[in-house]
């Protein structure tokens, strides 16, 4: 069971505060999409609008070709996995998972069989008669997932589902979510503020900021070819070097950069791991000022010889780090020049 979702010019205000500015977004059937952004960016509001908990001030929500804007949650082919799991404490796991089926009038034996299957799927088949308070956080998480999927929704909404879990468990759950999504084929709409989590699970990431969509694309797209300075920064650490136009090319504080740019001013963005001793864009000679070993890489601070005071952070592979004070030629890959939003 899966369905396409379309948001058409969704505008939402809370009193004087505009939470969403005319958002348009189409989610393909069976897609795993992640709404990513800092708190207050409107991602949770958009999810609540899709689930039917909030009616947008303007605009339409279309699920499977039908206008669902004013349909309450129980009339929608969506279910939600809530941030705090929202399990029913007075029911066994089997009754929790079977609740949605019970509300749909499914008979007791069929309901129990299906709920048991769903519990098996999330690896809790042997705990069917337990109650939620007997479980660990990660296990409750799985029950919430099983409960939401038991009614075979067309679209599953996940509201920061992994926020309360520790790092290791979170990674594991990310893999499981992805695997389960592939298996059931349901459209997943996942909200998070953790960019690593977004990249780990998403087919497509929607980066949101202040009620608008900043960038929408595959994880590689969003990470390596960001469309705006905001999404470039939000997706991870970034070297930002102000550049100005010099004819067709860009001019940085430490010399010309072999890249074309539009507009008069911009920001050259290069991820630390995309700087090294070879690449397609030369950054000129630089001196290593400081470095530290982080296990997976050496984190090195370089100072270009042509522009003292400017710092470039590079993550170099293990064992490839020059001595402090040494001069090297630096190159970059996957560099992009973006418009400076603050100046614009």
């Amino acid at each position: 069971m899966t369905a396409e979702v379309r948001f058409e010019a969704i505008h939402h205000r809370f009193g004087n505060f505009t939470a969403l500015h005319k958002v348009d977004l189409t989610i393909a059937a069976g897609e795993f999409i992640v709404l990513l952004g800092p708190s207050g960016c409107g991602k949770t509001t958009l999810l609540s609008i899709l689930g039917g908990f909030v009616t947008p001030t303007e605009g339409k929500v279309i699920i499977n070709g039908k206008d669902m804007t004013h349909v309450p949650p129980r009339g929608r082919p969506t279910t939600t996995m809530f941030q705090d799991y929202a399990l029913f404490p007075h029911m066994t796991l089997l009754d929790n998972v079977g609740f949605g089926l019970r509300m749909r009038g499914v008979g007791k034996s069929e309901r129990r069989t299906r709920a048991q299957e769903m519990l098996e799927m999330v690896g809790l088949g042997d705990k069917a008669s337990r109650r939620p308070h007997e479980l660990s956080g990660g296990q409750r998480q799985r029950v919430a997932l099983a409960r939401a999927l038991a009614v075979s929704p067309d679209v599953l909404l996940l509201d920061e589902p992994l926020g309360a879990l520790d790092m290791k468990l979170r990674r594991q759950m990310q893999d499981e979510l992805k695997a389960i999504q592939r298996r059931v084929g349901t459209t997943f709409v996942h909200v998070t503020h953790d960019q690593e989590e977004a990249m780990a699970v998403a087919d497509r990431i929607v980066v949101m900021n202040q009620g608008r969509i900043e960038h929408c694309g595959s994880p590689e797209d969003v990470y390596l070819r960001p469309a705006s300075l905001f999404s470039a920064n939000f997706m991870g650490e970034m070297n930002r070097i102000p550049v100005t136009a010099n004819g067709q090319n860009a001019q940085s504080p430490f010399g010309p950069i072999a890249m074309t740019m539009t507009g008069r001013e911009g920001v050259l963005c290069i991820r630390p791991e995309n700087i090294g001793f070879s690449g397609d864009v030369s950054l000129g000679p630089a001196r290593l000022v400081e470095s530290g070993f982080f296990g997976t890489h050496h984190r090195c601070h370089f100072e270009p010889l042509a522009a003292e005071g400017t710092r470039i952070v590079a993550h170099l592979p293990q064992g490839s780090q020059p001595g402090i004070g040494q001069n090297v030629e630096l190159f970059a890959t996957n560099a992009v020049i973006l418009r400076d939003e603050v100046a614009a």
Binding site: G52, F53, P73, T78, F82, G100, M103, R104, R147
Partner: peptide, 19 residues
Amino acid sequence: EHQRNALRAARDLGAREWQ
């Protein structure tokens, strides 16, 4: 808050208000 969320979940899963 815990209670509120559980009620939201019940509505989301298709429960009528009396249920």
